[in-house]
């Protein structure tokens, strides 16, 4: 669990060299295509290509692959089962929907595995004019996640010193967890106020237009990456049309 919670600087992997906004653009393209396809061939082609990207995202060890992907596998299985049971279109359609979940989720896994949140924030503010104060505010808040994980354990033990323990009673367990969560939230909100004071002390609210010390550069390879994503989608849809399975839906329709 703690491996996936490590929010420090991300290791440098091949995919890190693609600008985060290029990755995001590719994700949007793939997401749009998958969301509008309800067949099995389109997601199958997309997922097949995505599987080839694991090494580029530095996910080569089976353990790290499993840690990053098991939640989405659980999600895909449950979507597949619900549609198999309740849908009228049969097993192949259900498999398609499950594959679609995988195809939608994997690009996110790659982005997270290869991209430092700071680089992502830099790219969003530099290229997409995302408001810098909010991006930095989000980064500052992200720093608190590892602290929350450490404090969780301390607060849990502290409950026992007060005579509070859940034992095997599930209701008591939920109440205990909620209590711990509340204590952590009080601490986090207080810390947010102090952090805001410290940020303003370093001129965060000065009203001056912020500069960006690290910058974010778009290169030719970023364009190629997006183009490759578009090509994969074109191939996937073409294959689906040729196989006679293409079944587009339009959101809301």
């Amino acid at each position: 669990m703690t491996a996936s919670l490590a929010l420090g600087p991300t290791p440098d992997v091949p995919l890190s060299r693609v600008n985060p906004v290029a990755q995001l653009t590719a994700i949007v393209v793939v997401t749009l295509v998958l969301l509008t396809s309800l067949d099995v061939v389109t997601p199958a082609v997309v997922v097949a290509v995505e599987l080839c990207l694991f090494p580029a995202a530095g996910l080569t060890h089976p353990r790290s692959v499993w840690l990053r992907t098991w939640p989405l596998l659980v999600g895909a299985t449950s979507v597949g089962l619900v549609n198999l049971w309740l849908g009228e279109s049969g097993a192949l359609a259900a498999l398609g929907l499950a594959l679609r979940v995988v195809g939608l989720a994997l690009p996110g896994v790659f982005l997270v595995a290869s991209t430092d949140p700071v680089r992502l924030a830099d790219a969003l503010t530099v290229h997409w004019r995302f408001p810098a104060r909010f991006a930095v505010g989000a980064l500052a808040a992200l720093r608190l996640v590892p602290l929350l994980v450490v404090e969780f354990e301390s607060v849990r033990l502290a409950r026992r010193t007060r005579g509070v323990q859940a034992g095997r009673n599930p209701v008591a367990r939920v109440r205990l967890l909620a209590g711990i969560g509340f204590t952590l939230l009080v601490g986090a909100v207080r810390r947010a106020s102090r952090l805001a004071t410290a940020m303003d002390a370093r001129g965060f609210d000065s009203g001056v237009v912020r500069t960006n010390a690290r910058g974010s550069v778009l290169r030719a390879r970023d364009g190629w990456f997006v183009l490759a994503a578009v090509l994969v989608c074109v191939v996937a849809v073409t294959a689906s049309v040729l196989a006679g399975t293409w079944d587009p839906v339009f959101v809301g329709g």
């Binding site: 104060r133 500052a140 808040a141 947010a192 805001a196 004071t197």
Partner: peptide, 14 residues
């Protein structure tokens, strides 16, 4: 204000 931004962000993160 900064405290609005950071607190909202902290709620989001939590």
């Amino acid at each position: 204000r900064t405290v609005d931004i950071v607190t909202t962000a902290v709620l989001g993160v939590a």
